[in-house]
Write a protein that binds this DNA or RNA. Sequence first.
RNA 1: GGAGGAAUGGCAGAGUGGUCGAAUGCGGCGGUCUUGAAAACCGUUUUCCGGGUGACUGGAACGGGGGUUCGAAUCCCUCUUCCUCCGCCA
Length: 424
Amino acid sequence: MLTLALIREETEEVIRRLKVKNFNAEHIVSRIIELDKNRRSLQHLQDSKQAELNKISKEIGIHFKEGRKQEAEMLRQKTADLKEEIKEINQQFEKNDMELHNLLIQLPNLPHPSVTPGRGAEDNIIVREGGKQPELDDNALPHWDLAKKYDIIDFELGNKITGAGFPLYKGKGAKLQRALISFFLDENEKAGYTEFMPPLMVNQDSGFGTGQLPDKDGQMYYVNADNFYLIPTAEVPVTNIYRDVILEADVFPVKSTAYTPCFRREAGSYGKDVRGLNRLHQFDKVEIVQIQHPDKSYESLEEMVAHVESLIRKLELPYRIVKLCGGDMSFTSALTYDFEVFAAAQKRWLEVSSVSNFESFQANRLKLRFREAGDKKTSLAHTLNGSALALPRIVAALLENNQTRKGIILPKILHGYTGFSIID
RNA sequence: GGAGGAAUGGCAGAGUGGUCGAAUGCGGCGGUCUUGAAAACCGUUUUCCGGGUGACUGGAACGGGGGUUCGAAUCCCUCUUCCUCCGCCA
């Protein structure tokens, strides 16, 4: 959520920059400014009426205490109109405020000035590539066939137990999941992130805090009986640790990591995008989250990008880093780098991580603030997060790229975690 | 799941209808004293929304929401959370 102060003071700039995200904000913004003006004059009116009422109430109290019943009674009659007026003004105020809030949450985050305009994925900018694409035979198998051949992931059984998009990992397949999770968590911890194991369901306030609600309502699984949402990413519970919190500036950067399963309804997805592990309803991911001083959040973003890159390099996978254009960026993000690995049998780039700076957009929803040492006033902190990493597509690439006649040879770094070096 | 009790500032804890944003203690910050520190003493100490260049000033908040009242931390309803007892249970 953008702050009112920003919209009020930098109106043209806000509209201009939202255009980079292909969002025409002119109407909403001008209405917001109108409602904001309205809000302040209504509040002023309400405050002064309330002050009057408070004053009279105090006088009545004094009269009663000193036994002047008649005077008290006279004053009491005076309050009726005043109360009615306040009630009416308050209703207007609340109506005004609701409309204001509803408009405010419709505005996406401003893209960073360096973000280029564009329609979608085709306009993203490749920042750099790394690793080596393997040369596979023509009869190389996509990972879903390999999973079957080596009996490590059973999609049909997952289907039977739950439904499409809920794979059943088995034997070395299951162990590989556990190994990757441990590997990622260990690496993140070495990079200074504190490990958390958060709840997998969140309430409405948390969903709102990180921006999933209300706009991505339909993308989350919802537990009706208790009004909970299954988390689509660990970002939600981990970032919400700091909802309604005021930090002292010397704690920055706050670095957290967590492994969780992630649940996504993925309504509207279809086709070859969803084959095998490419797109799932339940998948495993290790997430990193940072809370940082506004002056340093872009340093943190670069640091996170370098860290994620190091993980992929250790897994010896061919990858590229993509800077998203305005049109491909999420609602909440100011700047996003996507990481893609090359799955050599599918001959496709698969997104395995998305590292973003949300600046104060989430913090404003979360009421996550900080105070400079010795300062009295608070300001909004910046939040960032990224996958480090999401498992399924990493597994897809590992299986496809490392297939040999003998079996699938795992990168050395994982051997200590899996206890085996080949899936055969 | 059933029965009872509770929720107040960073923490502890008073306050049961009126000048209460809230006693007191601890902690924090500033000062006096001291070569320095401790102790002692003095002062200060929540957040949000407004008005004013500013001194300053209006309003809101005692778990959340609603109600009664001229007036609510205090009374009523409701939700949430915690504690005690019982039941069930990995």
